[in-house]
Design a protein around this nucleic acid. Structure first.
Length: 937
RNA sequence: GCCGAGGUGGUGGAAUUGGUAGACACGCAGGACUUAAAAUCCUGUCGCCCGCAAGGGCGGUACGGGUUCGAGUCCCGUCCUCGGCACCA
């Protein structure tokens, strides 16, 4: 009986899901007459493992918001699609020879079925996938736009490269303030002399998409280059293979051009402070100054070493210079006697993995070049070192060592016996550097007597005046590597003529990814596409680019495509973009804090500059859903024998004699393990001995940890939906706790929401009714108590949805049902609005109850009920009375009783005397409708 | 080390601007129905103490201070957990 009845929820699910599909209930069309709401889930990568219960947490929340907003009259866009290019499908192809397109197709089908099973109301006709040529055609198009634009710092926007060519023809690059890696200066005459190839080489330094030879993270095992964020401790994040730094020609996007804007616009975003802070740090703006030091090379020439410092005021405290080992001047500045030692150090630094560098952090290393630089004002000789604590990629790759006021410099100076010289009055630098900016300068020529901030101003100006440097701003942010030597990604719309990249024209798009037979990397760093000569070699002698784009290419603009997903003529219709953007609510995991979210912002700013995106910032409000942790079960095996012992029989002191083994959670009921199931599941233990407890059962021990296949603690939504129905599953996901918190998945807990729906069903439909039994609601007038409970519910649920407190909404529904059961209320006037309130959370059962109660129309289109304060009012208010803050008794007064009268009632209350203990009442504080506090001394 | 979030019963959590701490559930215990189990229903469930009982007292939101008539909530200090970053000049 239990089994048959529980199946009914699954039947109801199927009925309504089929109906929504056939009605296309969740497709959406723009309506300029009504307000829009765009709610978005982070783009999933369709992995082979399918969804576990952690994934849909955010999807269910946004589905509830979307349905709620729809009831409120908004035109709601809540789309879903797939980020379907990526390494896992390619690595699967390497193992199996199955084309990534097929793997991806299968995985998407599985994901889609799982998402539909949960009753998520997506407009599936709008689904996009990044690996579809009709989609990546526009990813390639955006790349072409980046390639054909440069960033004008004066106008603070991207401009067409043709305008830059016109400027160069008119006046060279003098006066051009651009985001560029070009360092030379040329005039119009020089530009006119250059041939086409030379001009292209120069322009490439200005384009927002450009190529550059650079040190990259080369991972031989994956046969590919990794982004910095994909490398952890010198190992690849995926697979944990060693990574080496080698030079390679790479595509880059000039995100640094947008650093200032990406930083400044964070202010206006309704995002969690943690994410904003991470982006601020990632962009890492720091103000300071360039300072030029002159140095004599061993051959008697003069070299200029430019350093960057955020503390130019400490110039008189500098006692040495340090260059990054890769710094281009190291070669020329090295004295013959030091050549060997320097070469060795550079060799080591280059191949040294980050892992090793971290392991030895704290112990300074470095080598003196054997030469000196001259202090720009005192002329003092400062020794020049190289050390790997100075990074080539940040600032100028050179620093002045000020040991008195920088901790790392201090450690370095101590280690090499260099002088430590404070330039701040009354400061001790014996035990360590004084890094605070408090104090007055001493021994600093024209800076002496100034405060730190004054001195920074003065020296910065003075350096600029003297031609020895000047104020400067540096960013931690680097340009983003945009090349991947992989197959399963977007091909570049680029061909090469010699060393010059040439963009294809728009009408040649999309450049389709050709089929290949071997997925192995070529081993020399090029992508598998390089083997396809027929594809690479063009009739005109040019060669196709064989790199493909990284995973974040397609995901940096997908939210734009959803507004007009099948438009063959444009990225999207401008009208539709204007209607839908920005995204009003974006929900996803915090792991995308700096990667995806920064790139998507960058692309949107760029597309805004060139008139495509109507907004600069794509995501107005962002919410990070918390992780759902799994509950693993450990059972204990004797280390010395194939014997498992029930966990409750092992005292703490004997634990060390046992080895914990994780059991597949589906073989466990609470902590009790199905031994036969375990033997079948893990045949290597099929003959093991199991020691049961006195009750004859065998127990494991629970452990809360990340949900992962390797921990055997994965719970999938599919089985839960079959057993309890999609609605119980949805409610439980929400009931677990606040959306943003990390929380464990307790498999027993779903009983609670399941029980709630069963009680609701039994209360309204009845115990043993047949499948088609209608719902007999009473037409009687509701009482004031019933109305008060209903309107309280409306108010609570509405307010809680608004602040995304969905767990408390579920609790309110439960309390409401408890009350109605107690009152025996089955009145239509009460339950009809309830069904609307319930629909966003439990759409299947709500729709079924709505239909059975004889209501017409589609429940999901009904207006959201509004509460009315007049029903919330009670005739009497029960005040808690506290004496000096301690709760003593309750006092009931009529609603509109004046303050004085309430105070009088308290003062004369017989119960008061007993608690006063002879104390004298000082005053009586009445907080209207809340509390009464008697102050007595 | 730095940045961010957090610490409330056996468990997940609630308490929206300072106003009855522990809502709503899970689990557990006891009971009803049943030959029995499942399912369902009822009762209890922060700790300690007094009472046969109804009921009452004291303590309690990581720890130590403070502000306030009143603090889980605000302020100062300490400890712990989780997430992120890591030689950024």
């Amino acid at each position: 009986m239990y089994f048959r009845r529980s199946m009914r929820f699954a039947d109801i699910d199927a009925k309504w899901q089929a109906r929504w599909d056939s009605l296309e209930a969740y497709e959406v069309v723009e309506d300029p007459q009504r307000p829009k709401y765009y709610v978005l889930d982070m783009f999933p990568y369709p992995s082979g493992a399918g969804l576990h219960v952690g994934h849909p947490l955010g999807y269910i929340a946004t589905d509830i918001i979307a349905r709620y907003k729809r009831h409120q009259g908004y035109v709601v866009l809540h789309p879903m699609g797939f980020d379907s290019f990526g390494l896992p499908a390619e690595q699967y192809a390497l193992r199996t020879g199955i084309h990534p397109a097929i793997t991806t197709e299968n995985n998407i089908a599985r994901y889609t079925a799982q998402l539909k099973r949960i009753g998520l109301g997506y407009p599936w006709r709008r689904a996009v996938r990044t690996s579809d040529p009709s989609y990546y055609r526009w990813t390639q198009w955006i790349f072409l736009q980046l390639f054909s634009h440069w960033y004008d710092k004066k106008q603070q926007k991207a401009r067409p490269i043709s305008e830059l060519e016109a400027i160069f023809a008119r006046s060279g690059n003098i006066g051009v303030e651009a985001a560029t890696s070009y360092e030379g200066i040329f005039d119009a005459a020089t530009w006119a002399q250059w041939d086409w190839a030379q001009r292209q080489r120069v322009l490439l330094h200005y384009r927002l998409a450009y190529v550059q030879e650079s040190l990259v993270n080369w991972c031989p095992a994956l046969g590919t280059v990794l982004a910095n964020e994909e490398v952890r401790d010198g190992l690849s994040e995926r697979g944990g293979h060693p990574v080496y730094r080698i030079p390679m020609r790479q595509w880059f996007l000039r995100i640094t051009a947008y650093a200032d804007r990406l930083l400044a616009h964070l202010e206006e975003l309704d995002w969690p402070e943690a994410i904003k802070e991470q982006q601020r740090y990632w962009i890492g703006r720091s103000e300071g100054a360039y300072i030029d030091f002159l140095a004599q090379t061993p051959t008697g020439q003069t070299a200029r070493i430019r350093v960057f410092s955020t503390r130019p005021d400490t110039l008189w405290g500098a006692t040495f210079l340090v260059l990054a080992p890769e710094h281009p001047l190291v070669e020329t500045l090295t004295d013959a006697a030091q050549r060997e030692a320097v070469a060795q150090y550079r060799q080591m630094a280059q191949n040294r993995l980050e892992r090793d560098r971290l392991a030895s952090s704290g112990k300074p290393t470095g080598v003196w070049l054997g030469t000196y630089a001259e202090h720009p004002y005192t002329g003092e000789k400062l020794p020049i070192y190289i050390s790997d604590y100075v990074l080539m990629g940040y600032g100028t790759g050179a620093i002045m060592g000020v040991p008195a006021h920088d901790g790392r410099d201090w450690a370095f100076a101590r280690h090499f016996g260099l002088p430590i010289r404070s330039i701040l009055a009354d400061v001790s630098v014996e035990g360590g550097a004084y890094e605070s900016r408090e104090g007055r300068l001493i021994n600093s020529d024209f800076l002496t007597g100034l405060s730190v901030s004054e001195a920074i101003q003065v020296i910065s100006q003075r350096l600029a005046m003297d031609g020895k440097g000047g104020p400067a701003v540096q960013y931690r942010l680097r340009d983003a590597v945009f090349s991947r030597q992989r197959y399963w990604g977007e091909p570049f719309p680029i061909v090469w003529r010699g060393d010059i990249p040439i963009p294809l024209s728009e009408d040649e798009l999309p450049v389709e990814l050709p089929p290949i037979e071997k997925y192995e990397p070529t081993g020399d760093g090029r992508s598998p596409l390089a083997r396809l000569e027929s594809w690479v070699k063009q009739a005109d002698g040019t060669l196709r680019e064989t790199d493909t784009m990284p995973g974040w290419a397609g995901s940096s603009w997908y939210f734009l495509r959803y507004t007009d997903p099948h438009n063959p003529h444009a990225l999207a219709d401008p009208e539709k973009l204007r209607y839908w953007l920005p995204v009003d609510l974006y929900v996803g995991g915090a792991e995308h804090a700096v990667g995806h979210l920064l790139y998507a912002r960058f692309w949107t700013h760029f597309l805004y500059d060139i008139g495509i995106s109507p907004v600069k910032e794509p995501f107005r409000k962002l919410v990070n859903q918390g992780m759902i942790l799994g509950r693993s079960i450990l059972i204990y095996k004797r280390k010395d024998a194939p014997t498992f012992v029930s966990a409750d029989l092992i005292p703490e002191s004997e634990r060390s004699a046992y080895l914990p083994v994780r059991v597949e959670v589906s073989l466990v009921e609470d902590t009790q393990v199905d031994i036969e199931g375990f033997r079948r599941w893990m045949p290597e233990y099929k003959d093991a001995e199991f020691v049961r407890n006195a009750q004859g059962s065998f127990h494991g021990e629970p452990l809360i940890e990340k949900m992962s296949k390797s921990f055997h603690n994965v719970v999938t939504p599919d089985a839960l939906c079959e057993q309890y129905g999609a609605d119980a599953f949805r409610l439980y996901e929400m009931f677990l706790g606040p959306l943003t918190h990390t929380k464990p998945w307790d498999p027993r807990g779903i009983q609670g929401t399941y029980q709630f729906l069963r009680r609701l069903w039994r209360f309204l439909v009845g115990e043993e009714e047949g499948d088609e039994a209608p719902l007999q609601l009473s037409e009687a007038e509701p009482t004031s108590v019933e109305l008060r409970l209903l309107h309280t519910l409306i108010k609570r649920v509405t307010e809680d949805i608004e602040r995304l407190s969905l767990n408390t909404c579920v609790a309110h529904f439960m309390s409401f049902l408890n009350e109605m059961q107690r009152l025996g209320c089955r009145k239509r006037a009460i339950w009809k609005p309830f069904f609307v309130l319930l629909e966003p959370f439990a759409p299947h059962i709500a729709c079924e109850l709505w239909e059975r109660s004889g209501e017409s129309g589609f429940l999901w289109e009904m207006a959201w009920p509004e509460w009315s304060e007049e029903y919330l009012r009670e005739e009497t208010i029960t005040y808690p009375v506290t004496i000096n803050g301690k709760l003593r008794f309750h006092l009931e007064v009529a609603e509109e009783t004046p303050l004085e009268e309430i105070q009088e009632k308290v003062r004369t209350d017989a119960r008061l005397v007993k608690y006063l203990n002879g104390k004298v009442i000082q005053k009586i504080i009445v907080v209207p409708r809340k509390i009464i506090n008697v102050v007595a001394v």
